[in-house]
Amino acid sequence: MCSPQILAAALAEAPPHDDLCGGYGHPAGAHHEHGAHAGRSADAHHQHNATAHHQHNAAAHPGHHTATHHELGARAPHERSASATHEHGRGAAPTAEGIGRRRALRTALGAALGIAGASAAAGAIGAPRAQAQPLNLSGFSVRDLTHAVGPEFPVFNLYVRQPVQRQVMFEEIIGFNTAEWTMNEHTGTHIDVPAHSQRGLAHADAIPVENLVAPLCVVRITERAAQDNTTELHVEDLLDWERRNGRIPDGAFVAMDTGWYHRVHDPAAYLPFDPLRLALLIPGIGPDAAEFLLTERSIVGFGTDSSSLDVGTRFEPMVHRMLLRSGRYGIENLAALDTVPERGATLVVGAAKLRGGFGAPVRALAFV
C-alpha cells in the first residue's frame, strides 16, 4: 500500500465525485426515488438527508401489519443537474478537459499504487493468481434458497418501494465499479426479527448466531397451494411430516414449501391482489401450526417461500406476532425448497447485521 501522503497528493487535483462519474449512474426518473428532489437547478448539487426514512404501516408484509415500520434510511449520493441525467447510468459525453483530468487522476493513482498506468488494470502486471482450492464440505452439497434481488423483484408497492440500483463509479473512469442500492429491509429473501413486531425486542444485529445455523425441516403443501392460493399450513401437516420423518428436532427451522417461488418472474402471479377483498391471495402459516411449533416443539423459527408468514387474507398479523414476540425469527420469500429433502439438511442464514434493523436481507443456504 502507498502512504496516505502519496495518495493524498494523487487526489489533490481530483475533480469532485460528480465530475469523476461524468454523469454516469443517473437513470431517467431516478431523482424521485427515496427522497431525491425534483427540479434541481442546473448548477446546483444537493446532499440528501442521510437519516431520511420511508415510514409505512400495517403491511410492510402485505395485508397483515398494524404496527408502524420504517424502511432502511438510504443515503442518496450527489446528483448531477436535471439536464444531465441519462438512461441507465450513461451520462453526456465527457469534455476533453474532463477526460484529461480523469486520465491524470488514474495515472497519478496508478503511480501511487505501484501500477504501470491503466494497462496494469487489465492484468498485464501483477502476481500470478493462485489456483482455487475446492471447499471441503465433507460430503455435503450446498443448495441456495435465496432469490436474486434486483429492481424487478416483486413487491407490494402500496407499502414497499421497488429496489433501486444506481452505479456511481465506473472502471473506465476511475478503475473500479461500485453501485448504491436503495431497498426496503423486507425485500426479497429476508429475515423478520422480534423488533419487527414490537419495539424493545431484538433487532437484526442481536439475533444469536447459534440460532442462524439449524436443522432444516421442509413441510410441503405444494399440491394444495396449486389449487388454493390462500391455503395455510396446519397442525395436521406437521403431524403428517413427523409420521414420515420423526419428531421435529430441537433447535430446528421449519420451512413451508408451497412451490410459490416458481412464480417470482410473474409479479401478478407472485402477488395476486383481490381488489374486492383488498387482500393478497397468497398462502401462509396457520395460527394452529404456529402455536404447535412454539409450544409443543423447540424451534428457532419458521419461514415460507411466499412473501408473508401470514396468509394474505388475514389482516391482523397474528402469526407474525406469535412467532416474533416469542423471541424467534422468520424468513420470507425463500426459494428452491423443492431442491432439499424434508429432513436432514442444515440451514445457514447469512443475515445482514443491520444495527437497529427490523429485518434484513439474507443469503439462505442449505447443506445437504
Rank of each mutant, 00 (worst) to 15 (best):
331 I>W: 05
204 A>N: 06
137 L>V: 06
215 P>H: 02
129 R>P: 05
66 T>K: 09
178 T>D: 08
124 A>V: 13
194 P>L: 00
70 H>C: 13
310 D>S: 13
201 L>Y: 08
48 H>K: 13
308 S>R: 09
229 N>T: 14
109 L>G: 01
58 A>Q: 07
106 R>C: 15
242 E>M: 10
123 G>Q: 04
20 L>W: 09
132 A>F: 07
90 R>Q: 12
262 H>G: 11
129 R>L: 13
170 F>T: 09
38 A>V: 11
100 G>A: 15
21 C>Q: 07
182 T>F: 13
143 R>G: 06
194 P>H: 00
194 P>G: 03
182 T>E: 05
143 R>H: 12
342 E>R: 04
268 A>K: 04
167 Q>M: 08
135 L>N: 01
7 L>K: 11
45 H>A: 15
215 P>Y: 02
357 G>T: 10
138 S>R: 03
36 A>T: 12
213 V>M: 06
86 H>V: 12
155 V>T: 12
88 H>R: 08
178 T>W: 06
250 D>W: 05
67 A>Q: 02
328 R>T: 03
2 C>G: 08
47 Q>V: 11
36 A>V: 10
359 G>L: 08
215 P>L: 09
247 R>I: 06
322 M>V: 08
283 P>Q: 09
327 G>K: 09
318 M>H: 11
296 E>T: 09
158 L>Y: 01
272 P>M: 03
312 G>R: 01
242 E>W: 00
314 R>Y: 04
280 L>I: 07
263 R>F: 01
320 H>P: 04
329 Y>T: 05
148 A>N: 09
302 F>P: 05
124 A>D: 04
165 Q>I: 07
182 T>H: 09
84 A>I: 03
154 P>V: 07
124 A>L: 14
318 M>Q: 08
78 H>M: 12
342 E>I: 01
176 F>H: 14
80 R>H: 15
321 R>N: 12
264 V>Q: 04
16 P>Y: 05
50 A>W: 03
316 E>Y: 02
38 A>W: 15
186 H>E: 08
207 I>Q: 11
149 V>R: 07
237 D>H: 11
2 C>E: 01
232 E>F: 03
302 F>Q: 00
69 H>W: 00
341 P>S: 14
202 A>G: 00
217 C>F: 01
84 A>V: 02
46 H>P: 04
229 N>C: 11
155 V>M: 08
10 A>K: 04
364 A>Q: 01
47 Q>G: 14
81 S>F: 06
150 G>Q: 03
158 L>R: 10
287 P>C: 05
184 N>S: 15
94 P>N: 05
154 P>S: 06
201 L>K: 11
313 T>W: 13
334 L>C: 14
67 A>H: 05
331 I>C: 12
21 C>D: 04
92 A>R: 08
259 G>N: 02
91 G>V: 02
140 F>V: 04
325 R>F: 02
55 Q>M: 13
161 R>I: 04
50 A>N: 02
224 R>V: 02
4 P>N: 10
94 P>W: 02
28 A>V: 15
93 A>E: 10
50 A>P: 14
7 L>F: 13
313 T>Y: 10
115 I>R: 15
323 L>Q: 03
46 H>I: 13
120 A>N: 08
134 P>D: 04
124 A>M: 12
287 P>Y: 05
291 E>H: 05
191 I>L: 10
119 S>L: 07
220 R>E: 11
